[in-house]
């Protein structure tokens, strides 16, 4: 992997981390409302997976998707303005934190029904296969989705029809407050997926280099026409499930143990060791990300509100009359 590639991964993770840290402040000062689910700790997955896709590939995501959206190239301004409920938000303020969309970047949301995005990904892949386009649809979901019927229906259908889907299970060990072992009889999720006859492997989701390498390998296989792949990305969220979570279900010590594996300092240390990163360079990245964030907040706060008279727009297509 080139230095440039590693630096891109590092920068992407820092962008996501700093963005969400600021979101916490904005939420506390009530500028952002609704449910907000933070991704902090899981950035290696977004950086590694999304970074390995091309612009014509499609992405289906979940309600914990700020990181996915940013890594897909949706601007900080568009994501933040969405959380502010403004028309310059990437869903014009109709979706909020859980429903980020960008049709041009083929980012199909932002789905707040656990498992609800999997069938969409199968269909997007079916469309590209029927149209003869060499496109991969990446479908991100959490370990909680594995308990849903749609998970099993969709893995079967994608494998049966050899569709170009990359199933990316972000296993952060908790479905909201329910630990994996309290919900799943078999906790080896890659093993479960492999029973549907698709290549499936576990990946260290705290290591962006491992995530990027696994994604590249899977994408190459899928683009080659051999059907879907499944990645179990073993990761951990450092923060609560949402802003309303008292975290009664896990030990602080467990969280601290996982923080020792924080992907950002881990990659930075590796790059320093290999002579690919100096303190000054890291400072530059932080400073550039800080500037980007400051500009995004200003733009979000300056964004116009949708007039209430437009309330019922976008329920149906608007016909030219």
């Amino acid at each position: 992997m080139t230095t440039k590639h590693r630096e891109d991964l590092l920068r992407q993770m820092i962008r996501i981390r700093r963005f969400e840290e600021r979101c916490v402040e904005l939420y506390s000062s009530t500028k952002i409302r609704g449910f907000m689910h933070l991704y902090i700790g899981e950035e290696a997955v977004a950086a590694g997976v999304l970074g390995a896709l091309g612009p014509s590939d499609a992405v289906v995501s979940t309600y914990r998707e700020h990181g996915h959206a940013l890594a897909r190239g949706i601007s900080m301004e568009a994501v933040l303005a969405e959380m502010y409920g403004r028309t310059n938000g990437c869903s014009r303020g109709r979706g909020g934190s859980m429903h980020l969309f960008d049709a041009g970047r083929r980012f199909y949301g932002g789905n707040a029904i656990v498992g609800g995005g999997l069938p969409l990904a199968v269909g997007l892949a079916l469309a590209s296969a029927m149209r003869g386009e060499p496109v991969v649809t990446a479908c991100l979901f959490g370990d909680g989705a594995v308990a849903e019927g749609e998970f099993h229906e969709c893995l079967n259908l994608a494998a049966l029809w050899r569709l170009p889907v990359l199933f990316c299970c972000e296993n952060n060990l908790y479905a909201m407050g329910t630990a994996l072992a309290r919900a799943q009889a078999e906790t080896d999720l890659a093993l479960r997926a492999s029973s549907y006859g698709m290549p499936s492997w576990p990946v260290d989701g705290m290591d962006p280099l491992a995530v990027a390498a696994a994604t590249e390998r899977a994408v190459e296989s899928i683009r080659g026409g051999s059907g879907p792949c499944f990645l179990e990305l073993r990761t951990y969220r450092f923060r609560a499930h949402s802003m309303y979570d008292a975290e009664r279900y896990r030990d602080r010590a467990e969280v601290e143990r996982w923080k020792d594996r924080d992907p950002i300092p881990r990659l930075a240390a590796l790059m320093r060791e290999d002579g690919e990163l100096t303190d000054a360079e890291l400072e530059t990245i932080e400073s550039e990300v800080g500037d980007e964030l400051t500009a995004a907040i200003a733009a979000a706060e300056a964004g116009p509100f949708e007039p209430v008279s437009d309330l019922t727009r976008f329920v149906y297509a608007e016909h030219a009359s």
Partner: peptide, 10 residues
């Protein structure tokens, strides 16, 4: 859901 996705996909 695959029908919905395929419709999104053109």
């Amino acid at each position: 859901g695959a029908g919905i996705g395929a419709a999104l996909g053109g």
